Amino acid sequence: MAAFGWLTHRRRPATARSVLAGEAAAEAARKNEQAAGQAARGTAPEPAADEPVFPVVGDERAAAFFDLDNTVMQGATLFHFGKGLYKRRFFERRELVRFAWQQAWFRIAGVEDAGHMQDAQDSALSIVKGRRVAELTSIGEEIYDEYLADRIWPGTRALAQAHLDAGQKVWLVTAAPVETATIIARRLGLTGALGTVAESVDGVYTGRLVGEPLHGPAKAEAVRALSAAENLDLDRCAAYSDSYNDVPMLSLVGHPYAINPDAKLRRYAREHEWRLRDYRTGRKAVRVGIPAAAGVGAVAGGTAAAIALHRRRA
């Protein structure tokens, strides 16, 4: 997989479902931003004295896009939402065991396993089918306080705040449900979130997705669609991720950064002179390349599952 089409043309031919998922995520993100209005921003933690944030300059046509799991937050977001749903009796103990195993694997391997996603998605969506969007959104707010608030990487949070302070918009981009991602973005004072969109009719989940999970190429499609709607110049934008799976998104922007990278992304970033930083061990940033000038609740477990649970046994 060393030779990707997007490395030369910055665009890999995407499937129709990837494009649909990306466009749906961009539309949902813009609607959520408009609905939120000018919400108060959270207070960013100060970076350690020996860990200055990457330089960011003001640029109205630039924005920053942050992957969520292991980039902004320690571990898998959906695992913790799954725990919250289990606590509220959304599924059985045996499913929680599988959920815990997936989280343990994720933490040890440090990479996503796309091969499980379709089976997990089908299982997860069956959990939320027939549930009201408002109900799961409210539960998502509670779960954030219970499990996620203390798992945010201060260093990455400071990077996001640097973009905000420069007058840029900052978006999460994640395979997590868009409602879940939007809650996290709002709590952190970010602009909004691009996430997996689950279909709902009259405020009730149908058990189907719009397109596919926002993963890999679909993330790039979402960033591309949002950037077009926001009149952004992708060459002036920045993107941050820990995962090699996000090379499509990272390659799309002019300022890609590897944060807490998995082994494949670390090698790839060094080969392409992208800048790196690892907050997991306290190591200082590996400075590679030129300084930067870049300058859901609802399915909250619903697709919590969609990415983190294994096949649900009948």
Score class of each variant (00 low, 15 high):
S18F: 01
E23W: 00
A63V: 00
E271L: 12
S251F: 06
G295E: 08
P217S: 05
G42H: 06
I307G: 08
T182R: 10
D246G: 11
V170N: 00
L188M: 15
A114V: 11
E142R: 13
H272W: 12
S138G: 12
A298F: 09
Q34F: 12
P154W: 01
G22C: 07
P177T: 03
S123G: 15
R89P: 00
G216W: 04
D262C: 03
V204G: 00
F81Q: 05
K169L: 07
K31Y: 11
Y86W: 15
A222D: 04
A175C: 07
A269K: 01
E142K: 09
A21I: 01
L232T: 00
A225I: 03
H116V: 05
P256G: 10
T8R: 15
A48Y: 05
R41C: 00
C237Y: 06
E141K: 12
Y86K: 10
D246M: 06
K264L: 14
F99W: 05
A49H: 11
G295R: 09
D202H: 08
Q74M: 11
K284N: 08
L136M: 14
P248T: 07
R107N: 09
T71C: 13
E146T: 01
A300S: 15
H116R: 11
T15Y: 05
K169C: 07
G302F: 05
K87E: 15
E199T: 05
A114K: 15
V111I: 13
R266H: 08
